[in-house]
């Protein structure tokens, strides 16, 4: 799966979790850029991403992701 293809699916996940069809994310997107992305909603997002891509983030990844770019890097690594 290419990075672009991952972003297509990832945007859908973000739109679904944060209930906002206008959300589009990129490598530089951080929690402060998305309305409602707080520490509680973060886990809902992580679980939704895991289900969408059929992967499992480690707890280190769950708490250590600095931006969406890093999230995509980790998704690519898990997909092998």
């Amino acid at each position: 799966m290419t990075r672009e293809e991952i972003y297509v699916k990832l945007n859908e996940v973000f739109q679904d979790v944060f209930d906002d069809e206008d959300i589009t994310v990129n490598d530089a997107t951080v929690a402060a850029d998305v309305d409602g992305w707080d520490s509680l909603e973060h886990i809902n997002l992580i679980v939704a991403v895991e289900r969408c891509f059929g992967i499992k983030f480690t707890m280190g990844e769950t708490t250590g992701l600095k931006n969406v770019g890093e999230m995509v890097d980790r998704i690519i690594a898990h997909l092998g």
Partner: peptide
């Protein structure tokens, strides 16, 4: 938050409860 709440929220039982409650009370 990092060592207790996140692992609890990400645990299989809580995810199951979440699936059940979303089906019962709606997604939001």
């Amino acid at each position: 938050r990092d060592y207790l709440m996140y692992p609890v929220l990400k645990s299989a039982p809580l995810i199951k409860i979440g699936d059940w409650s979303k089906a019962k009370f709606g997604k939001k």
